[in-house]
Design a protein around this nucleic acid. Structure first.
Lengths: 334, 334
DNA sequence: CTGAAAGCGCTTACAG
DNA sequence: CTGAAAGCGCTTACAG
């Protein structure tokens, strides 16, 4: 393996000078710099990251904690984070939080595998996470918040997306409205629910029928929720689903029962999954801005890592309404 | 930060002994071991991974190269790999190959960020990968193979899944058969196509109508392929789609044109995505065994890293037929 | 602007 | 069974 010492020998300089060239110190003579760069090239030198990490006490990597791959939004977030990390020349380490016995992010941070951690796990914080935060280690919550701990958060404006959905339905003249909300133990679902309810309350419009998913947000849960609504005898003219995936299940339930969408019933979701554009669903939804979430999460985390920030910040990324055939007859059906 | 030297001081032993306890050397006196463990506990010691990595010349991490998040199978594979890595106390580093300017896996391997790399990227190998393999670095291809290079491969039996699909249709009396195949530039699609065709050829059954996706495997491509088939005037009684996602698009196309599935037409896919079970699709498919793929990929890579293997291996993981309503009327419809 | 040297925190021969 | 010491490959004060 080629080391900086080998490069130094070839270039006829000291190893320290090679290091200075690598780290772009301005103090290196241009001629020497060129010679060193040529030597690096000819020897095929590559920096040993472990050595640098040990010396500088920083890993050059950040960790992402995920869970519930069933959440179809997660891959898009993970993908965006991967690219955002690449842009910053950071290595992205991924942990799955579902396995309690696994070497976890906590250990990863403690053992200096990563400099900081982005938590994307949907459900409530683990004990390990609380410890990390209490120790003041760099941690950012991504697309969720914590109830009992003061910590940096970057997330979609879940509450606002619920509000916007309600305003959209009300603004289009709907007054008999139902809803299927995601599970209470996540952060996003109750927030969307609260936002949705707030606007309805303010307008004095009651929620005709609603259900809350028990268990995981899923197609099946949406299907069941819709069936339950149909069986209840209530006949709303619009239904809000707090996740796209719930809406997919609901749409299929309605289809199987002969409920025409959007003629009999408007359906809208939240998330903006690519699948929402499929003609099977053609779902009106509140689109989350994954790129913005990923960028802001990483920026915030790096500020924490760099210690350039004091105060805790809660950053809300707006969602955007995408209107499709599940709520309005589109001029150009796909 | 607590180091092994601090622990040694507390335990009243040398730093070397602490290291031996950490690495479970059998030669440590039980009494001393207990004392050291207690000291580690009381000081809150955590091993510095960078230091260990530098000293042992190994990273304790392996890299995964992904691309095309649009491929809905990928998250499941990535999830399985994450868990498989956890079980082995390995850190999993993820790179996205779509970003050409990003610090890539090649650099990651060269700079000792990872000890080996699993390539899951669907499309043909990059130049960088070829270099790595030529250098004899530990690389395993996961769920794909390379045409022009001899390298370890762990993948679903794509060819076999095509064959099995054909046999399933023929075995159920279908003789007028169509197909929509995924793009040629991937590995899996042509392999599935070849397997499917081989069985039909052997049975002397011609393929009524077929199309190959141009561009990425997608719902839209499946939709378009199905429309094209309908417009061709051919009326097969079964259609094979070489990916579930293609089948989803096709199913919706058929639905929109009033083709009844499975009454008029059987539809089957390959992949075994969870979505295939949704009642919107209820798709018969060849299920890939993600867990087995992930386990075998990691095992194989670790053999390479450890240098305990000489010969190149191609491991095929069988797929399993899952029969649903898109091909047969099920006794208990969901 | 450059070099010699210290030291980051480990592991592991080498003595004892 | 244990300790003193070398050394993994870097970065960065400190001299010059």
């Amino acid at each position: 393996m080629v080391t900086s010492r080998d490069v130094a020998k070839v270039a006829g300089v000291s190893q320290a000078t090679v290091s200075r060239v690598i780290n772009r110190h301005a103090t290196v003579d241009p001629t020497i710099r060129t010679r060193v760069l040529a030597a690096m090239e000819s020897t095929g030198y590559v920096l040993n990251v472990s050595a640098k990490a040990m010396r500088t006490q920083s890993a050059g990597a950040i960790g992402v904690v995920t869970s519930e791959i069933q959440n179809p939004f997660l891959p898009y977030l993970l993908d965006a984070l991967t690219r955002a990390a690449s842009r910053r020349s950071l290595t992205l380490v991924v942990w799955n939080d579902d396995d309690p016995d696994a070497p976890n992010a906590r250990e990863g941070l403690a053992s200096r595998v990563v400099d900081g951690i982005i938590f994307t796990a949907a459900t409530t914080a683990s004990v390990g996470m609380h410890d990390l935060i209490r120790q003041g280690r760099p941690v950012v919550l991504c697309n969720r918040a914590a109830q009992d701990i003061d910590i940096d958060v970057v997330m979609s404006d879940h509450y606002g997306s619920g509000q916007a959905s309600a305003r959209y339905l009300l603004g289009n003249g709907h007054t008999s409205i139902a809803a299927i909300f995601g599970p209470d133990r996540t952060y996003a679902s109750p927030a969307r629910q609260a936002g949705f309810r707030q606007v309805l309350d303010e307008a004095g419009i009651p929620l005709l029928h609603s259900s809350v998913v028990d268990g995981q947000t899923s197609y099946e849960a949406g299907h069941a929720g819709a069936m339950q609504m149909l069986d209840s005898g209530e006949r709303p003219d619009a239904i809000f689903c707090s996740s796209d995936i719930i809406a997919f299940g609901a749409l299929d339930a309605f289809r199987s029962r002969g409920v025409r969408v959007p003629d009999d019933l408007w359906v809208c979701g939240v998330d903006g999954l690519p699948m929402a554009a499929w003609s099977a669903f053609d779902l009106t939804t509140q689109q989350q801005d994954v790129e913005a979430i990923a960028e802001a999460s990483l920026d915030r985390l790096l500020e924490r890592v760099g210690g350039t920030t004091e105060h805790v910040e809660h950053l809300l990324i707006p969602t955007g309404l995408v209107v499709r055939g599940s709520t309005e007859h589109m001029p150009w059906p796909v």
